[in-house]
Design a protein around this nucleic acid. Structure first.
Lengths: 196, 196
DNA sequence: ACCTGAACACCGTTCAAGT
DNA sequence: ACCTGAACACCGTTCAAGT
């Protein structure tokens, strides 16, 4: 599974091929099928492997649920950005393995220990997670300010897109925007669902 | 392009094949290449087609930027949910066509007319968009409360996942959770970046 | 200008066969 | 138990050829 992830990191999702995978392992391509039922299961393994990189240690519930939830999801973001090629797989494949369920429980427990009710914790973490995945998805898709690659790409023109141009005028920083959204989501949640 | 989207809606992303596409059009499979350079361009067309379904008419800036932004993104969500099979394509492919840029400008203009600065409008809409796409992505991936399909799927067990079990105890409603996150993001944005 | 069909270099997966 | 290799039914794309 580790080699599968490495292959995706290097060559993209389409670069992971049962044949290439076998070659990388120095083995007949079809030998893989003895250990893995099919390519789909291999992808599931990759999803788990990426999530395993998220380090939840050292998050202190005593700092309160806002800090806990924000930190947990920041760490997820860091890992996601480390594997840009694997992200489409992550975002697209729902995997309900015991390992992933355990990780979810762990995060929720931290947030609950930070002072939120179970239901509120789940809603908050789910929303933060959705925001994080979505944000990294567009960030890695290319800069919002145009400059996109490929044919058919169009740049922002001040005459045709005055508001967009004005918005992007003094730069565009994905990290900064992520923090803005993160803060808004957490504070807004406190406001509308608020506990302490 | 319309038939391409229909094919995806019916048979999934992998169901869209140049050969099948040609067949659906009642034409030699390879005739498609006269009109479209490659499959990638066809996908770009599909992304545009889906976005075109988002109806921005009748959103009244007079109701203020909060209502405008929330409504715009709710309408996006409705469209995304209408094309579950196309969503992975949407989420994954950045397309910077003139058409999509125009649509973005239009939304931003509405929000700015609703009383927000250009930069704030871009940050808010980007974050809302990321949240919306991410949320629909997990919603369509399957219910969070387990019940996932496929082998290796595990259910939540009260003993192993007490917090998760407690959180899901009285049901789980994706629409409701989306509205919670949406409200939190908008209100939190008002709080931290606030204009009127 | 528009379409055809053969061909090329790949896929994922199955399966009988080897050790 | 673990690996091989031929085979099957597909892919996307190119290209010479037809009308």
């Amino acid at each position: 599974v580790r080699t599968a992830l490495a292959l995706i990191d290097r060559d993209g999702v389409d670069g992971l091929t049962m044949r290439r995978f076998g070659a990388e392992l120095g083995v007949d391509p079809m030998a893989v099928y003895y250990y893995v039922p099919n390519k789909s299961a291999l992808f599931d393994g990759v999803v788990e492997a990426v999530h395993d990189e998220v380090d939840l240690d050292g998050i202190d519930p005593a700092r309160g649920w806002r800090a806990v939830a924000a930190d947990a999801v920041r760490r997820l973001r860091t890992v996601l950005r480390r594997h840009p090629n694997a992200l489409p797989v992550l975002a697209t494949r729902p995997v309900y393995s015991a390992r992933l369920l355990d990780a979810g429980e762990r995060v929720l427990t931290l947030v609950v220990d930070g002072g939120l009710g179970p239901r509120e914790a789940l809603d908050l973490v789910s929303c933060l997670r959705a925001f994080t995945v979505g944000h990294v998805l567009v960030e890695l898709g290319g800069p919002v300010g145009g400059a996109a690659e490929g044919p058919g790409a169009t740049a922002i023109t001040g005459s045709r897109h005055p508001v967009l141009a004005a918005a992007v005028a003094d730069g565009y920083d994905a990290d900064q925007q992520y923090e803005i959204g993160l803060a808004a989501l957490v504070e807004g949640f406190a406001l509308t669902r608020g506990a302490a």
